[in-house]
Design a protein around this nucleic acid. Structure first.
Lengths: 117, 117
DNA sequence: ATTATTGTATTAAGTGATTAATACAATAAT
DNA sequence: ATTATTGTATTAATCACTTAATACAATAAT
């Protein structure tokens, strides 16, 4: 999977999402060592700082941990990974329901409309 | 319903949404005349231009039509209102599914998780 | 015909976020 | 002890977006 970006939202968010995706799908397995910031940045063709921000986000989600010079490790805690995924999902779902309610749709309607797609 | 804002997204979007809400819920019934830009702006305590932008968005959605000096009328086309609502919903749903897919959830999973909330 | 009321366009100021440049800090490896 | 490798902090440049100030345009009302 290569790095690809659109311009409709910040690079660092897209980086973060793609990194997350890789962890969730096992490209970077639990306990494995992530490439150094600078290398990832080079791969993706972005400034190291941008990648750093994406990685900080990953940290925030509990998917990885940084050690000064030993590099950055994907958490070994499978449950943490699953928790992180669910947490993100929770937020997305909340946003969805909020948006639909603003249009005047009830929860049930919001759920029903989803199926019609 | 009074005008109330948060600072997590642009005023004009919030204005637009609240105006939409009012039309969808019949506060401004089909065919009725909306207050002038300047008056709405004064009510909401925002710059007229900001309100103008919100109203332009309303136009875009097909919920209202502007006439030079006769003011702005809510569309009389009930179907147009319903269409506008559905269109917005469609976008929201698409965003939702996209976000969930980025987390590795299938469509079915995305639908199922919704119900668990 | 004039005026008041309305919507619109233009331009600039303000604001915040993203990205980049650079320097610093910690520690594993030697 | 030194060095190379890694993560982090700081600062500044860039950019886009929001908001505001102001002027213009159209037309209903008189």
């Amino acid at each position: 999977m290569d790095w690809v970006f659109t311009d409709d939202r910040p690079i660092w968010q897209q980086l973060s999402q793609q990194l997350t995706r890789r962890i969730l799908t096992g490209v970077y397995p639990p306990g494995s060592k992530l490439p150094p910031v600078r290398e990832l940045a080079a791969q993706a063709g972005v400034n190291p700082n941008t990648m750093q921000r994406a990685l900080a986000q990953l940290e925030q989600s509990g998917l990885a941990e940084a050690n000064r010079t030993a590099g950055r490790l994907v958490t070994e805690d499978l449950q943490a990974i699953e928790r992180a995924r669910r947490e993100q999902a929770r937020q997305i779902i909340a946003d969805y329901l909020r948006a639909m309610e603003e249009l005047g749709y009830s929860f049930d309607q919001a759920a029903a409309l989803l199926k019609e797609e």
